[in-house]
Design a protein around this nucleic acid. Structure first.
Lengths: 221, 221
DNA sequence: AAGATAGGTGTACGGTGTACACTTGTCAAG
DNA sequence: CTTGACAAGTGTACACCGTACACCTATCTT
C-alpha cells in the first residue's frame, strides 16, 4: 500500500460498483474490473465484502435506498402511485438491478421500504389479506414492466418496429402474422412512450384496488 | 467419433439443454456441463449452435412452444386468462427462463404466440391502442409475478416468515417494523398459495381491461 | 517497544465461453 | 473404385471469471 492512499471502505466500493454496473451492465461487471476502477488489486475488495454475492446485496440495497417510500401523510392512491413511479425510474437508471431486487437478501433500506409500503396500505384501511394481494399485484407489475422496458431500451418505436419486421421476415414472412404486421405498421405512427404505457397499467391496477377495497367495506367506500 | 454413435442435432441438444437448465438452474448451466451430459466434447455443440447465446434463444423458443395460445373460439376473457395461467405454469417449471423470455431474439414459437394473443384482443373489439396497453399490462404482470414467485420458491409460508423474521432481527429488530412483523405473524396462519395470489391479480387486471373496453365502446358494452 | 490488527498484494486453482486447427466418417461425382 | 468435398466430433489454447491462501506493511493499543 503506497503511503497517503485513501483506504477503501464499504461505501466507496458500493458507490463505484453501482456506477460501474450502470456503465457496463450486469454481464460486464466483474470484481476484477471493479478493482481496476478503484486502482486496487481484486482481492482487496474481499477485505470489505465476503463475496461478490454480498457486494451485490449491498448494491441492491443502495438502489432501495433511493426509492421514494409512500408518505404517511397523503392518500394511499397518490402515495402508492408515486412509489411505483419512483421504482420504475430507479430501475430505468439501474437496469442491472432488474430481476435482483426480489432475490437478494434484503438490506435495511429494503426492509424500510417494504415496511412503509405495507403501512400505507394497512392505514388506508386495507384488511391484511387484501393488503397482501394489493402489494403482490403492484410489485409484480412494476418489476415486470421494468423488465419489458429494458428489452426495448435503446430502441425508438421506429427502430423496434423495423427490427421486429426484419426478424419476422427471416422466419416466415410478415404476411403470416397480420397482427404483428399491424404493430410494426401502426406503432411507429402512434409512438410508444414507456412512461405513458407504465402509467396506464398502473392506473388500471390502482383503480381495481380501489374497487376491491370499496367492495370489502360494504360498498360504503 | 466412435462408429455407430447417433449424431447430435439441434433438437436433441435443445431438449437436453432445457432439461439440464431445469435441473441446475441458469447459473449451473454451462456449455461444458451440457456437453458432458450429451457424452460429447464441448466444442461439438458449436457445430449446431453458433454460440451459447444462440442456444439460449432456442431454449427460450422451446418454452414458448409449450405455451397455450388463446383459442380463437372462446371469449377473450377466459382465453386470455388461460393463456396467462399457462405462462405462469411454464415459468414455474422452467425458472431459468424467467427474465429471458422478453430479451432473447424471438423465435417462431414466440412470434406465433404473440400473434395469437394480439389477434384475440383485436377480434374481441379492442382498438389498436387499447390492445397494446392491454397486452403490456398483462405481460408485465405475468412475468413480474413469475419473478416474485421464484424468489419465494422452496419456501413454505412458515419458513419464509421465519427467514424474514431472522433477517429483520439481524438488522434492527422486528419491533422496528411492526407491519413486517404482522406479515411474519399472520401469513403463516392464513397461508400463501402462489396460484391463488396469481389469479387474484390476474382477475383484477382482466376486470379492469373489461371496464376500459366497455368505456371505449360508449359504455354500451 | 511490542504486538495485534486492518488493509492491500501476489500467486494459484478450477471454472467459463469459444477460436482454431485437426481428424474421421459419409457420401456424391468422375 | 477412387477422389475429394463436406459434416461432425476432437484437442489444444487463450482470456476471463470468482476467490482461497500466504504474505507484507502501516497504524494503533498497551
Amino acid at each position: 500500500m503506497t503511503p497517503d492512499r485513501v483506504p477503501l471502505n464499504r461505501e466507496r466500493v458500493l458507490h463505484a460498483a453501482v456506477a460501474l454496473a450502470d456503465e457496463l451492465g450486469i454481464d460486464g461487471f466483474s470484481m476484477r474490473r471493479l478493482a481496476k476502477e478503484l486502482g486496487v488489486v481484486p482481492m482487496a475488495l474481499y477485505k470489505h465484502f465476503a463475496s461478490k454475492d454480498e457486494l451485490l446485496d449491498g448494491m441492491i440495497d443502495a438502489v432501495f435506498a433511493r426509492l421514494e417510500a409512500p408518505s404517511p401523510d397523503s392518500d394511499w392512491k397518490p402515495a402508492l402511485k408515486a412509489r411505483a413511479l419512483s421504482v420504475r425510474r430507479a430501475l430505468a437508471r439501474h437496469p442491472w438491478a432488474i430481476g435482483l431486487m426480489e432475490i437478494r437478501r434484503p438490506g435495511p433500506a429494503n426492509l424500510e421500504h417494504h415496511e412503509a409500503t405495507m403501512r400505507c396500505l394497512r392505514q388506508a384501511g386495507f384488511p391484511f389479506a387484501l393488503a397482501i394481494h394489493a402489494y403482490s399485484v403492484q410489485d409484480a407489475y412494476v418489476y415486470g414492466f421494468a423488465q419489458q422496458e429494458r428489452a426495448l431500451n435503446f430502441e425508438t418505436p421506429q427502430s423496434a418496429g423495423e427490427a421486429a419486421r426484419r426478424r419476422a421476415e427471416e422466419i416466415g414472412g410478415l404476411d403470416q402474422y397480420p397482427y404483428l404486421a399491424e404493430i410494426a405498421e401502426k406503432l411507429p405512427e402512434t409512438g410508444y412512450d414507456p412512461a405513458v404505457e407504465f402509467e396506464w397499467g398502473l392506473d388500471l391496477i390502482l383503480d381495481g384496488l380501489e374497487r376491491r377495497l370499496d367492495a370489502q367495506n360494504g360498498r360504503a367506500g
